[in-house]
Amino acid sequence: MNLLRWSRSRWGLVVALLADVALGGPVVPGLSTGPSLAAAMAAQESVTAEWMALDGVVGTAVGRESDGDYVVTVYLTALGVARLPASVAGVPVRYELTEPFQAIGDMPIPEAAADEIDRRAAFPRPVPIGVSTGHGGVTAGTIGARVVSSEGVFALSNNHVYANNNAASPGDPLLQPGVADGGRAPDHVVARLHDFEPIAFCQGRFQCPFNRMDAAIAATTAEDVGVGTPEDGYGAPRTTPAEATLGMKVQKYGRTTGYTHGRVTGVNAIIDVNYRGGTARFEDQILITGNGFSAGGDSGSLIVSEGMLAADRRPVGLLFAGSPTSTIANPIEVVLERFGVAIDGGER
Results as ranks from 00 to 15, higher is better:
Gly226His: 08
Val273Gly: 06
Tyr259Gln: 10
Ala112Lys: 15
Asn158Leu: 07
Ser169Lys: 13
Leu37Ile: 12
Gly292Gln: 13
Leu76Ile: 06
Val335His: 04
Tyr70Thr: 05
Asp172Cys: 03
Leu336Ser: 06
Gly235Gln: 12
Ile271Val: 15
Asp195Ala: 15
Arg276Val: 12
Ala122Glu: 07
Arg276Gln: 13
Gly178Leu: 12
Thr327Pro: 03
Val138Ala: 03
Leu54Phe: 04
Gly80Cys: 06
Ala42Cys: 08
Ala216Thr: 04
Ala121Val: 01
Ser305Gly: 07
Asp195Ser: 14
Met41Gly: 07
Arg314Tyr: 02
Ala121Pro: 00
Thr245Ile: 14
Val148Cys: 01
Gln207Asp: 14
Gly90Asp: 07
Gly63Ser: 11
Val15Pro: 00
Ala42Phe: 09
Asp272Cys: 00
Thr239Tyr: 00
Ala191His: 05
Thr73Cys: 08
Ser150Met: 09
Ala191Leu: 06
Ala145Lys: 12
Glu151Ser: 13
Val341Ile: 13
Ile143Glu: 00
Gly317Ile: 07
Pro230His: 01
Ala311Ile: 00
Leu318Met: 02
Val28Asp: 08
Ala167Phe: 03
Tyr95Ile: 00
Val264Arg: 01
Ala140Phe: 01
Ile303His: 00
Thr327Leu: 00
Ala155Pro: 10
Pro177Glu: 06
Arg238Thr: 05
Ala185Phe: 01
Ser9Tyr: 05
Ala49Gln: 13
Leu31Gly: 00
Asn166Gln: 05
Leu18Phe: 11
Ala185Leu: 04
Thr139Ala: 15
Gln176Met: 08
Ser150Gln: 14
Tyr253His: 15
Tyr253Arg: 06
Val153Leu: 07
Ala180Tyr: 14
Gly25Leu: 10
Val138Ser: 02
Cys202Ser: 03
Ala216Pro: 07
